[in-house]
Each structure stands twice: as C-alpha cells, then as structure tokens.
Design a protein around this nucleic acid. Structure first.
Length: 506
RNA sequence: CGGGGCGUAGCUCAGCUUGGUUUAGAGCGCCUGGUUUGGGACCAGGAGGCCGGUGGUUCAAAUCCACUCGCCCCGACCA
C-alpha cells in the first residue's frame, strides 16, 4: 500500500485550487466571512501581514516625497457625476447613503431623515480629493502636490473572494497633481516602479510592469499601468495600478493654477493604489499543500520557538533556555529590524503546535527540548523545506546564521516564483495554438492549465472582446521593457511591433 | 443577474433515492481524568445539533413538494 503524504490542507492545489485557497486562509487564521455579504473580517494574523505591507510601502511613499492625509468616506453624489468615464465605471457599484437616522416603527427600525443629496461611500477618491486639490492649488509654486491616503473603500461587486475581491477593502490611494504632463507621467512611472520593487523584494512575487489596453483602463484615466503577477494556478493577478489621469480630473474638479508665465492652466494628475488583494497574491504565490508560506520580510513572526516538554524537572530548564534563546534571537538584526520571535508557551502537544505554525507560514521553527538544552543547540525547521526536513544547530551557530537563513528563504521564494512563471510563459504566434493553450482538457472540472502567452497583438477592442468570449482571456498588459520585435497580430494579422501578455486573470 | 453544486455538532461528512426503532450518527476538534512524550498519540468519560429558514403534503418529514436565505464554483463586472 503506497503511503500518501498527508498534507495539512485538503484539497491540495492540484485537486481543487479555489477550495485550497479558502482552506489556507482558514488554516492560517487570516480572515473569515462576516455576517455582511461580500465583506470579510481580517483576523490578527492576516492583519499583521497587512500592517507589514503598510509599514514598508508607507516608508517608500515618504521616501519619494509623499505625505499622508485623510479624506471623507462619504462623497456627495454630484461629485461622481463630474467626469463622464468615471461615472460610467463606478456608478453601478456604489453604495448609497440616503438617510441619516432611524426611527422605530412597530418595534422595527426603519430609515428616516432623508438626505437632500445622497452620499456615496467612496469606491475611490479622485473626485473628493480633486475638489480639495482645487482649493489647495493656485500657483505653480503649490505643485507638485503629493498626497497619499490609507483608507477603506466600497465597491458593490457581484462576486467576491476573500482578499482578492471583497465589497469593502483596505487600500492605499496616492493622488498627485503636477504642473506639467511630463512630471505627471514621471510620477506614474515612478510609483509603478515602487510597486514593482515592493512586490519583488518584499513579497518575493515577480511582476511584469506594463501598460493596460484601452479596455482595461481605469475609468477616467488617459493611461493605466499595472504590475501583473502569476499565481500558482497560472492566472494573472493585477497587483497594483498607477494611472496617468491627464487633465481629465483637473478639468472635472477645476484644479487650476497660474503658471510661471502668469497663465491660468489645468494641473496634470495621477493616482495609484494597492490593496489588501496583495495578501491574496502573497498567499497564492508561495503557499503549498501544508498551508501558508510567508516571505520573511513580511512575516508577522520570523521565528517561533516550540518547547518540547517532558517532565516537570526538565520543563523548567527547557523553558528557561527557550526564554533566553528568544531574547537572543530578538536582538538579532534582519532587514534593518529586530528579528520577530515568539515562544509558544501554549499547553498541548508539540506536534499540534508545530503544525499550527506550519499552516501559518512562519519562516523558521525551532523545536527545543531537553536534548537541545543539554547540547546548547536548537532543532530547526524551515517553511520553505518539507515539514520533516529539520536539522540541529549549535545555538551560537544558529544565532550567527539566522539573518542569512532568513534572507536565503526570502531569495529562494522569489526564485521559485520566477521559475514557475518562466516555466509557464510561452511565446505563441499561431492562433490555434493559443486556443489550445487556454482550453482545458477536462471541461467539466478544468485542470490547472495555460499561463502567460506572449503574443503579437494589434487587434484593438473587437479582437480583445473575441479573446474574452472565446477563451476568457485578456491582454494583461503591454510590457514596458519588452524588446521591439516585428510580427503579426495573432488575431488580425496586422503588423505588430511588440508582444503583449495574454492570460486568464483574477 | 444567469448556469451548476451545497447547506445535518466548531470542522469534514454519512443518513435523504424507497418518509416510521434515529429519544438524530461518525471521524476530527473541544472539556474532565488517566497513560504517554523529539512530535499532528492512546484509553475512559463528557459537553455540543429544534438537520439553513418559512410554508405545505402526511397519522408521521433531516428525508417528499413549494418558496426563501446563505455559501462555493463557472460566467457577466471588477483591484
């Protein structure tokens, strides 16, 4: 009888990827569904990951000259009407506030006090920030205006998925105003670069920087840029966006200033954002059939110590040893900070505790018992290796090696993710082959298939529409660093100068 | 909002086709006691469910019917 390796998560990725995703969230205690449809409760472990994302990104924003501010959750309905494309993009998914109090009727509470002008709950803040920018900007000396806000937004989506798409989500939205088009375009590119840097170097998630096609553009933007990552089911995840808004919003909101020649002109604006979706991306990039795997730079804990206790006489000594060990580990520096360590003093058997940390994705586990105490050593397991792959190290050696081990895990996750993306990225020049690539063998229960197809594409909206209808794939982006290459559009045969990324997406 | 699947204990599910010994079960988890101890252990005892909700058919409904709510998947929409 062949012994099957028992995985902590069922089903496995290969068996049922969407279900696996949900089970990892539950096993790692990241979040759970709330009584409100489409909204989730982010639990401490999940929120701690988001806090790390916030901390790092916030530092990057400040380092590039941005400052934080906060704008209201409610936006007057009339504000949304100001920019035509924007209206069209967001009107059908807005939560609307129409009343400002409740009254009791037959024991039931019903809305009362109707508002003269309804308020919408922000789906994004271009309009209200634009209204404020209009007041703040009068002279070219007031520019550039570089503002960011950390906030929640609401988009009444039809279908939700934990972290990837929820009705309410947390994000960061940067909004800037500039004196010239060039400056605004530079800002758009700069922030895309910040996102790419963060994704690769902190999330260990390789991304492709690119421009969106017309069909995928942000409502109201002149051009939209994104970072696109490949998940383990080979679907693309748009992980961050940066928009060049031209003068569309400054005209809509009347953001005008006197330039250095004394002329009254409209400002050029940008906006850019990433959301709690990143947590979902992090999960789907690295996690395995035993649960979450976290890159050290964003892990809430780097090291967890699980004491192995036998009898009372040993226990006291082991615990004492663990405590001093925890203190020493906490003094080690990694990534410019103290190593985050926890001693798991919960009651219960070692095995259960160890598996709980495996499922939560802590990079380094130490199992410390009487033997280790006696030998002044530790027994270490790494989350990037299998659960059984553990080894003993002298305490001093471990302490000295720890920063290198953490960085090795961080780098290893990135290269593993890169290898996965590369293995599933192909150049395709034949339409039939493209259709084969994106058609599952088993239509009933589609297996993991497809990936990124690099194709010549000059088909415009109709051809994109056809791709979407036939294969449910889209042009994810036109890569920025693509090498110019002569070719023919895979859909229309028209001449093309560069390849685009085609894929299924979240 | 369309198509499919599913709602029975905290979790995973059996029971439903062929209504009636089902005062509603199992495994895991939980609580208590004990035995264990380099590992998701074992034994004994225990707590926990008006079978998603409402209505109907019937002498009798977890089981049949209608409606409804919720969740998941696949679409349409989107970060």
């Amino acid at each position: 009888m062949a012994q099957q390796v028992k995985t902590a998560i069922t089903p496995t990725r290969a068996e049922d990827y969407p279900e696996w995703y949900q089970q990892v969230i539950r096993a790692a205690d990241l979040a759970e569904n709330s009584p409100v449809r489409g909204c989730m409760v982010i639990k401490p472990w999940g929120y701690a990951i988001w806090e790390n994302i916030q901390r790092v990104l916030d530092g990057m924003f400040k380092a590039t000259g941005h400052v934080n501010a906060y704008f209201p959750l409610f936006i007057p309905l009339s504000f949304l009407e100001k920019e035509a494309a924007h209206v069209e993009g967001f009107a059908k998914e807005c939560a609307v506030v129409t009343h400002h109090r409740l009254k009791s009727v037959d024991g039931k509470l019903v809305p009362d006090g109707e508002l003269e002008e309804p308020l919408i709950v922000r789906p994004t803040s271009e309009t209200i920030i634009g209204a404020m920018f209009a007041k703040w900007v009068q002279s070219y000396r007031d520019l550039p205006l570089l503002i960011n806000q950390w906030a929640n937004v609401v988009r009444w989506e039809m279908r939700t998925r934990m972290f990837l798409r929820t009705t309410e989500f947390l994000w960061q939205e940067g909004h800037t105003a500039h004196a010239t088009q060039t400056e605004a375009l530079e800002e758009t590119a700069k922030m895309l670069e910040v996102y790419a840097d963060f994704a690769e170097n902190y999330m260990a998630m390789p991304v492709i920087k690119g421009e969106k096609t017309e069909g995928e553009r942000f409502p109201g933007a002149v051009s939209t840029f994104s970072i696109e990552a490949m998940m383990q089911d080979r679907k693309a995840l748009q992980a961050g966006t940066s928009h060049f808004l031209g003068q569309n919003f400054s005209k809509a909101s009347d953001i005008k200033f006197l330039d250095d020649k004394g002329e009254l002109v409209h400002a050029w604006t940008t906006s850019w954002g990433v959301s709690t979706r990143l947590v979902g991306g992090l999960l789907m990039t690295h996690s395995d059939d035993d649960g979450l795997v976290l890159p050290p730079r964003l892990a809430p804990l780097h090291v967890v110590i699980v004491p192995i206790l036998r009898d009372d006489a040993d226990s006291a000594k082991v615990l004492e040893y663990c405590q001093s060990l925890a203190k020493q580990i906490g003094d080690v520096q990694y990534d410019g900070q103290k190593v985050r360590v926890e001693l798991d003093r919960r009651e219960g058997r070692g095995g259960d505790k160890i598996w709980s940390w495996i499922k939560k994705g802590v990079p380094v586990r130490l199992e410390v018992g009487p033997r280790d105490f006696a030998a002044d050593s530790v027994f270490m397991g790494r989350r990037d290796l299998t659960p059984k792959d553990k080894k003993g190290l002298k305490r001093e050696e471990f302490l000295a090696e720890l920063p290198r081990i953490l960085q090795e895990i961080q780098d290893g996750l990135l290269s593993r993710a890169k290898a996965h993306r590369q293995a599933n990225t192909v150049k395709i020049d034949d339409k039939e082959e493209l259709y084969r690539f994106f058609t599952p063998k088993n239509a009933e229960k589609p297996e993991i298939h497809g990936g990124f197809a690099l194709c010549h594409f000059e088909g415009g909206k109709e051809a994109e529409e056809q791709l979407k209808n036939d294969l449910n794939v889209t042009v994810r982006c036109i890569p920025l660093n693509a090498e110019p290459e002569e070719g023919k559009c895979i859909m229309t045969g028209r001449p093309s100068q560069r390849r685009v990324v085609v894929g299924k997406s979240y």
